[in-house]
Amino acid sequence: MIVRIMGEGQVRLADSHLAELNKLDDELLAEIESGDEAGFRRTFSALLEAVRRLGEPLPADALEPSELILPTPDATIEEVREMLSDNGLIPG
Rank of each mutant, 00 (worst) to 15 (best):
M6L: 12
L89I: 01
M6T: 13
Q10V: 02
P71S: 14
L68R: 07
A62G: 04
S85G: 12
G9T: 10
R12W: 13
S45I: 00
L13W: 05
I2M: 14
A60D: 08
E37M: 12
P91M: 09
A38L: 00
E33G: 06
G39R: 02
E37P: 04
L13Q: 06
L47R: 04
A30N: 11
R53T: 10
E64Q: 09
L84V: 02
G9C: 08
G35I: 02
L24C: 06
S85C: 01
E79L: 05
E82Q: 15
E20L: 14
F40N: 15
E67H: 12
R42E: 14
R53M: 04
T43D: 00
R42S: 12
E8K: 13
R41K: 11
T43S: 11
P65V: 05
N22T: 13
G35M: 02
G92A: 11
A14E: 12
S66H: 01
L68S: 05
L24G: 08
E27G: 13
L68A: 10
E33W: 07
P73Y: 09
E79Q: 14
E64M: 14
L28A: 05
A19L: 15
V3K: 03
E37I: 15
A38I: 00
L13H: 04
L63K: 10
L48Y: 01
I5E: 06
E56L: 11
E31Q: 14
A30K: 14
E20S: 13
E79H: 08
G55Y: 03
